[in-house]
Every structure is written in structure tokens, then in C-alpha cells.
């Protein structure tokens, strides 16, 4: 190394170091970017396409749209959805499949949206709720259909003979499931 290089090296080095120091000093006085969570809970709005967790929307009459076809269960790569249905006999003698329990394991879900794409009824969707932490893993398994809820009938269909569900049916939610032997969807999940 020639002497010239030695001294120009020092000069270049010191200059570059001072540039760096200048940058950090400037940032020292700029506005900070820290998000003050949870203080900002009110303003903190997730984007509407954000996939927080799967929900089954119910209308004000406690009705959902799920017909229990099990397509979502088949579409799920992780087997995080379990649809339990039963067969009920309608007053006109026809048999009809009805949703008993829609279990969703948030702990297994990888938010791929395949269930939502598969659903022919638009019965499930992702909500933007992101505070999903729980203390116990079993709490991650959620039942998405509300107790006592039933599938929304098409307006043209005759009035169903289910007066009990109209009332505050929350008192005995498990009753129908206990009476009829729960008929798990016979179709296997596509892959586990």
C-alpha cells in the first residue's frame, strides 16, 4: 500500500463514517413509526380483504346459509374443517340434509381461501378479526354455526315446521344433535 493510498483511505473512511452518522442523526429527529397497539385499537382497522379467521355469518333471525354439503371440508388441504350433518324428514316426507355442527380448527387453518372458493352458497367468509390468541389449544377449535341456528330458507319455499328455532332457542342447543345420531359427512377429507 503506497502512502498516498494510506492517507486517501483514511480520508475516504472518515468521510463515509460521517455520512452514516449524519443519516442516523437525521433519523433521530424524524417521526417514529412505532404502532401503539393496543392503544390504537380504535383506529387500527385491518384491510377488508385481510384473512383473520373463518366465520359463518348469521342474519338477525339466527339463520346461516350452510346446507352442509361438505365441499369446504373436501377442499381444505389441512383438514381443519369438520362438517357434521344429519338427515331430517320434512313434513312432506322428503329427506333433507341439515347442518348440525360446523367445526373449524383455527390452529390448523392456513388461510388459503379454498373453502370459501368451494362454497356454493357463500355461507362462510373470512373476518378481519386478528386478535385470535387463546390460552388453550382446544379453544382454537370453534363451532361456527351458532347454537340453535338453522339454514336460511329460500323465500319461495313453504314455511318450515321448525317453530322452536324461531324462539330463543339458545337454551337447549345440543338437543337436536342428541336425538338424531349425528351423521358425519361420509366423504373423506381430500388429504390429511
Amino acid at each position: 500500500m503506497s502512502n498516498n493510498n494510506y492517507f486517501s483511505g483514511i480520508f475516504f473512511g472518515v468521510k463515509s463514517l460521517l455520512t452514516g452518522l449524519g443519516v442516523t442523526m437525521k433519523e433521530f429527529f424524524t417521526r417514529k413509526i412505532t404502532e401503539q397497539y393496543p392503544e390504537n385499537r380504535k383506529e387500527l382497522k385491518m384491510f377488508d380483504r385481510f384473512r383473520g379467521r373463518l366465520v359463518m355469518p348469521h342474519n338477525d333471525k339466527n339463520e346461516h346459509k350452510c346446507i352442509g354439503c361438505g365441499l369446504c371440508q373436501m377442499a381444505c388441504p389441512n383438514g381443519s374443517i369438520k362438517v357434521t350433518t344429519e338427515s331430517v324428514e320434512l313434513p312432506d316426507g322428503k329427506k333433507k340434509r341439515q347442518l348440525v355442527k360446523y367445526e373449524y380448527d383455527l390452529g390448523c387453518c392456513m388461510f388459503c381461501e379454498l373453502c370459501i372458493t368451494a362454497c356454493p352458497q357463500g355461507a362462510i367468509e373470512f373476518c378481519t378479526d386478528f386478535e385470535n390468541a387463546v390460552f388453550d389449544r382446544t379453544k382454537l377449535v370453534q363451532q361456527l354455526n351458532l347454537p340453535g341456528s338453522h339454514v336460511a330458507e329460500k323465500p319461495v319455499a313453504p314455511k318450515p315446521a321448525a317453530p322452536a328455532a324461531e324462539k330463543p332457542a339458545t337454551e337447549k342447543p345440543a338437543a337436536p344433535a342428541a336425538e338424531a345420531p349425528a351423521n358425519t359427512n361420509p366423504e373423506k377429507p381430500a388429504a390429511v
Partner: peptide
């Protein structure tokens, strides 16, 4: 990541392309 999240719904696991196009139109 904000741009991704707004259009695709995910930040890291974006999940946007699909066979035949996109999961949803751009935001």
C-alpha cells in the same frame, strides 16, 4: 406489505394467484 395486504389479504402468505387468474380483482 400494506399494498399486498390490501389487495391480496395477506402479507407474507399472499395467496393471490390462482389457476386461471387471480383470487380477486386488484383493490
Amino acid at each position: 406489505l400494506d399494498i399486498f395486504e390490501e389487495t391480496c389479504g395477506g402479507r407474507l402468505i399472499i395467496n393471490y394467484n390462482t389457476i386461471g387468474g387471480l383470487m380477486a380483482d386488484i383493490h
